[in-house]
Nucleic acid binder design. Structure first.
Length: 431
RNA sequence: GGAGGCGUGGCCGAGCGGUUUAAGGCGACGGUCUUGAAAACCGUUGUACCGCAAGGUACCGGGGGUUCGAAUCCCUCCGCCUCCGCCA
């Protein structure tokens, strides 16, 4: 949620920066509504003041044994006027809110300006981007590798479709164990620097989805249980943010560093393409998330902390990646700055996002009303919030399947995962 | 799922149709006193919005209604507690 005052006064060029990601944005309708709103407030509040004054008079006269019914007519007129003005004001305010709620965060000043992802900038990379033909045995893509693993194929799309629907998948056997070892490894990494681990509810109410920025604009992307007004979380960013909704954090608690493990559920309506078969884009995946609440002046240094943290995890798995700084047009609604870590997928001959690290500045904190009281200052201020994947399992698994495949169809277990596989260092091929 | 009870300021708690502009207490902060502290006493103590200001308006879990007037009456939703039922 943006602060209207910042847009109306164009603080630090806010209007132009907003236009750099949303070219259709115009301040004029907002300014007009706000002017009308102020006028109505002045009018209705002076009527209410008179109403209150007259009401006190009635009380005083009743107390004195005097019959005040002669001024009821005047009160009725005032009251009717107030009701009409109040409803007009409510309508203006609601329209203003509807327009502000869907506006995205203002990009940070150093974000590359472009209206789509072609403007993203590579800022680092790791490892060697080998192509399929560089392998010294016939390279298989992740699907073929997975389906060839013992004891019954590592993935079972056919039966997942039967019990649930298209584009759902299911891990089986040793590949399921490898998936789970990834989860445990990510959790151990994330908690090693003192982050508190949270296992939150996987369903949240729609207020929580509003606070994080998903609702109202991206409602169609979420799975909902409408009978109960509950939504399956698309990322644990949602419950982590809402942990402290409507609360004031003590200064000493910041920066507050949290992590969580949850499945993530996404409808991914209308996004499927042939290049996204298999595990690239699924309706349910596992993710270990890191999340920080910070003071406003330390959020950009915290962003670096989280980026480096996520990179190290991928590097420890020896999986090649590139680090991208997203352009204005590719930012998520709530983000002021985002860095994506994209794993190299030789089977697709492309890069695919395994982690996304964002500084949401005060955008979510305003929607969720999360503040802190700075030092000796009396007035609470909004915190900044940051989130990052560390990491998402499904696409990491794609990269593992392709990079760790062996010539006989087996799969080598990455060194760092062996302890979580009880020392097993290889998944055997189907016989 | 059934029955009942309860949601008032940072906390406790009174108020149950009009001098409530929400009593009183605790806590916190400031002061007096004291070598220092405690105690005692005095004072201060919410948020948001409109306004250049003076000042005004709103807020008693959320929303709606009744009324000239609602913390107070009615409806509805949410949350918490007690008991019963069911259940991993």
């Amino acid at each position: 949620m943006l602060e209207l005052r910042i847009l109306l006064n164009n603080v630090d060029g806010a209007v132009d920066r907003l236009k750099s990601r949303d070219p259709g944005f115009s301040i004029d309708p907002l300014a007009l509504l706000d002017k009308k709103r102020r006028e109505l407030i002045a009018e209705v509040e002076s009527k209410k003041a008179e109403q209150n004054k007259t009401n006190r008079e009635i009380g005083a006269r009743k107390k004195a044994g005097d019959d005040p019914s002669d001024i009821y007519k005047k009160m009725k007129e005032l009251s009717d006027g107030v009701k009409i003005l109040d409803s007009e004001l409510a309508e203006i305010q609601a329209e203003l809110n509807r327009q502000i709620e869907v506006l995205p965060n203002i990009p940070a000043p150093d974000v590359p300006v472009a209206f789509d992802k072609s403007g993203n900038v590579k800022t680092a990379s790791f490892g060697e981007f080998k192509r399929a033909e560089d392998w010294d045995f016939p390279f298989k893509n992740h699907l073929d590798v997975a389906m060839g693993l013992s004891p019954s194929g590592g993935l079972d799309f056919k039966r997942a479709s039967k019990m649930t629907g298209a584009n759902w998948s299911m891990y089986r056997g040793d590949l399921a164990r490898l998936e789970w070892s990834l989860v445990m490894y990510f959790i151990d990494r994330a908690t090693s620097d003192g982050r508190e681990l949270i296992i939150p509810p996987y369903l949240v109410n729609s207020q929580s989805m509003f606070s994080s920025g998903q609702f109202p604009k991206f409602r169609e992307q979420a799975y909902e249980c409408r009978d109960d007004d509950l939504v399956l979380i698309p990322t644990s960013e949602v419950p982590l943010l809402n942990l402290y909704r409507d609360e004031i954090l003590p200064d000493a608690a910041l920066p507050m560093r949290l992590t969580s493990f949850t499945p993530c559920f996404r409808r991914e309506a209308g996004t499927y393409g042939a290049e996204e078969r298999g595990l690239i884009r699924v309706h349910q995946f596992h993710k270990v998330e890191v999340f920080s609440f910070t003071r406003p002046d330390e959020s950009f240094s915290e962003l670096e902390v989280i980026i480096n943290y996520s990179r190290k995890v991928l590097e420890s798995l020896k999986l090649p990646y590139r680090l991208m700084k997203l352009a204005t047009g590719d930012l998520a609604q709530q983000s002021a700055t985002t860095f994506d870590i994209e794993a190299w997928l030789p089977g697709q001959n492309t890069f695919s996002e395994v982690s996304s690290v964002s500084n949401c500045t005060d955008y979510q904190a305003r929607r969720a009303n999360i503040r802190y009281r700075p030092g000796d200052q009396k007035k609470p201020e909004f915190v900044h919030t940051l989130n990052g994947s560390a990491l998402a399992t499904s696409r990491t698994m794609v990269s593992i399947l392709e990079h760790y495949q062996e010539s006989d169809g087996g799969l080598r277990v990455p060194d760092v995962l062996k302890p979580y596989m009880q020392g097993q260092d290889r998944i055997e091929p189907l016989t």
